[in-house]
Amino acid sequence: MAEALLKVEKLFCERDDRILFDGLSFEVHAGEVLQIEGQNGSGKTTLLRILSGLSRNFEGDIAWRGEPLDEAMQDFRASLLYFGHQPGVKATLTPEENLNWYAALHPDIDVDGIADALSRVGLAGYEDVPCHNLSAGQHRRVSLARLYLSRAPLWILDEPFTAIDKKGVAEKEQLILNHAARGGAVVLTTHHELTLAGLRRINLDDRAGTS
């Protein structure tokens, strides 16, 4: 079997004297969709922040393509699309300006694709409207447009469907499936019932040590 994209071993994380997870080990292979489940406060977001390299508040080993994450950081960041709790959209900028800036941070993104990506998330005609005039769902759609632009193999998505309508969710599910079919990998959390084929789940509720 091909080498895992992301390999997590014996991950331990504690927050405010509460153990969120202990001895958590899993692998993410190309072509996989992994859903992190758990109640509110079970540490889903914390886990995704650790996986993305944002948080160093953990013990254990994370390897990217067989190399420790710390050493492979440059390659890892170029291969990662992270959709965080906050959508990462500037309210005073227009959707197009927001995506232009994202493209500047990720040189492999084709700037000409921005208009197309915006129309695919249903924001055609809103290119020049400052994001604070958009609805909450549209706001998040600006950030989701990155999914159409990015060529990164690993997607880490934290609650990508919050405030998105049903049709939008169905489209994003399809997008996630396509990404996996192309050989990408997706790690996500969501409270939506996902009906994706081949979905793998990790539940954090029973991972906590004796608290």
Binding site: S52, G53, L54, Q74, R77, A78, L80, Y82, G84, H85, Q86, P87, G88, V89, K90, A91, W101, Y102, A104, L105, H106, P107
Partner: peptide, 17 residues
């Protein structure tokens, strides 16, 4: 502060640039 609160700072930290 504003960048920290709306998540754009996270995106900058995760950039390969």
């Amino acid at each position: 502060r504003a960048d920290y609160e709306d998540g754009t700072l996270e995106q900058a930290l995760l950039s390969p640039q």
